[in-house]
Simulated scan of single mutants.
Amino acid sequence: MKKLELISKGIENGYILEKYGVHGTEKLNGMPSLSLPLEWKNAPEGTKSYALVMIDHDAIPVTGFTWIHWTAIIPRDLNKLEENASLENKDIIQGVNSWISSMGGLSKADASHFGGPAPPDKEHDYTFTLYALDKELDLENGFYLNELYKAMEGHILDEATIIGKYKNIK
Rank of each mutant, 00 (worst) to 15 (best):
K3F: 09
K3C: 08
L4C: 02
L4G: 06
I7C: 09
I7N: 14
I7F: 07
K9M: 08
E12R: 15
N13T: 02
K19Y: 03
G21E: 07
V22N: 13
T25P: 10
T25W: 11
E26R: 09
K27H: 10
G30D: 06
M31G: 03
S33T: 11
S35K: 00
L36G: 14
P37A: 02
L38H: 07
L38S: 08
K41L: 01
A43T: 10
P44V: 00
P44D: 03
E45M: 05
T47R: 03
A51K: 01
A51R: 00
L52G: 04
L52P: 06
V53W: 01
D58R: 02
D58C: 04
A59F: 11
I60W: 12
P61G: 10
V62N: 10
T63E: 13
T63V: 14
G64F: 05
T66A: 14
T66N: 12
T66S: 12
I68Q: 10
I68K: 06
H69E: 10
T71S: 09
P75E: 03
R76C: 02
D77R: 03
L78D: 04
N79F: 12
K80L: 14
E82Q: 10
E83N: 13
S86G: 15
E88H: 13
K90V: 07
D91S: 15
I93E: 00
I93L: 00
N97L: 10
S98K: 08
S98L: 12
S98H: 09
S98P: 12
S102D: 12
M103G: 02
M103W: 05
G104I: 02
G105Q: 01
L106S: 00
K108V: 12
K108C: 06
K108Y: 09
K108E: 14
K108A: 14
D110Q: 06
F114V: 08
G116S: 07
P120K: 02
D121Q: 10
D121R: 11
K122A: 14
Y126Q: 15
Y126G: 10
F128K: 00
T129G: 13
T129W: 13
Y131A: 05
D134K: 08
D134C: 04
D134A: 00
D134T: 01
K135P: 03
K135S: 04
L137Q: 01
Y144D: 13
L145D: 15
N146T: 14
N146W: 13
N146Y: 15
L148Q: 04
K150R: 14
K150I: 09
E153N: 14
H155V: 01
H155P: 13
H155Q: 00
H155S: 12
I156T: 10
I156G: 07
I156K: 02
A160S: 11
T161Y: 03
I163H: 12
K165N: 12
Y166V: 06
K167S: 09
K170Y: 10
